[in-house]
Design a protein around this nucleic acid. Structure first.
Lengths: 226, 226
DNA sequence: TATCAGTATTTTGTCAACAATTTAAAAATT
DNA sequence: AATTTTTAAATTGTTGACAAAATACTGATA
């Protein structure tokens, strides 16, 4: 018998714990370098240590938490770490754009255009929160539409770290002016089904980000003594 | 006081469990699609379910195990999965070659040349096992020498899946004749410190693999009815 | 005051038990 | 014989307890 009125079963605690702690990290509710204890997290979530342990192990695997000896700390990225992530992103996300241009459905085309429109509005009204959110939506849709499972897994990891770093080390990283035009160009290429062009535009888009990072880090170079 | 005679402490059981099960998977001691139980694995390793659970969760995260409902199965890759992995590899490993060419130490240069020599010998004497092992060593050294943490993490995941698939779906994937010359070319570029060239050679190397995959899969296309 | 030894506390590592589900098997009814 | 119902077994989800290790603390000694 097929389920008609699906009873929503709660997700297992370890899954909830993973998502919850991840969100907490991405929202930067913990300080970078801060030490976390299983018991503390368990108390926070109102569960026992078991599920928390599983979640923590996964987050360590993802690189959002770091294990030193037996203890767990919140990832405290260096400039080099940021560059490392962006170099991978530069290679993988253009591939996602290419594949998306070749595969994306009509429905997703519409969604993509919708995101572009909303971004435009958000820019006009200077709604910073939305600008960031729509940017995330844009890149996410392209990734998910690529249809490449391995790529999606990697980009999810990159995305999490990226989001985390954005609110941290990159907090005063002011969005460039041109990113919107670049998004439009990428969108055009995808909708035209031009994989090569989509790939190229995405690559340039990320390279602009990297260049921007270079200028930021140069001004902070003094602190780089250690 | 600095530790002189370091007492070797055994790794935690969950770490051992992870490595053990992973090796088991990579050696294809389990059948693809086979169902695994926590209790079964625990009995196999002679530990309780706790550490096994943590290991299994990680392996699911890595994609070597798959969760359907509440149960755990050994990853059973399709042709598409193989292609997905190789497309990512094609993007990331050339980056590794480039970075290695820029960073690699003299000692690693020597190691690289040594691997090349041993590969040559293995080829002459047709020691298949060694040919595969040295190939792995070669690629691994280049990855690890890249100095990019994010890249290393991703390539480790790819490497595991790749190894797993090689013994599975790619089992009768006969190594190409030209791979050795390609390795030599890559090595030359790296030792010359020519990042661009190293990147290019590595890219061609992997593209040759992908082309080979294409011919293999085409001949199996008939079974692709489902 | 600084250093060391010893003690107490915290935290992780591991296990075993129990509850809750799911799956498999057996029995019964049509 | 086929389908449902009931019962039993197996498996995962979760917790609490205990051991072992690491850390922090205290007081004594020089």
């Amino acid at each position: 018998m097929k389920p008609i009125s699906p009873i929503i079963k709660p997700e297992p605690l370890h899954v909830q714990a993973y998502k919850y702690i991840q969100n907490y990290l991405l929202d930067n509710e913990f300080s970078p370098g801060e030490r976390l204890t299983e018991l503390g997290l368990a108390a926070m979530l109102g569960v026992s240590r078991g599920p928390v342990r599983e979640a923590v192990r996964l987050l360590i695997h993802d690189g959002l938490l770091v294990q030193k000896g037996v203890h767990i700390y919140v990832f405290d990225p260096t400039f080099d770490d940021v560059i490392d992530v962006y170099l991978c992103k530069e290679r993988l996300e253009p591939l996602a754009a290419k594949l998306s241009a070749q595969h994306m459905s009509q429905a997703s085309h519409d969604t993509l255009l919708d995101i572009i429109n909303r971004t435009k509005q958000a820019l006009e009204q200077d709604e910073k929160r939305n600008i960031v959110n729509f940017n995330t939506e844009f890149h996410d849709l392209i990734i998910q539409s690529s249809g490449n499972k391995q790529l999606i897994q990697f980009m999810n990891l990159i995305h999490a770290k990226n989001l985390y770093m954005r609110n941290n080390i990159l907090s005063n990283y002011d969005r460039r002016d041109h990113f919107f035009e670049e998004h439009v160009r990428i969108t055009d290429a995808i909708i035209n089904g031009d994989g090569e062009q989509a790939e190229l535009e995405m690559k340039m888009h990320i390279q602009n980000d990297i260049n921007m990072l270079g200028t930021i880090f140069k001004s902070n170079q003094k602190d780089d003594s250690k």
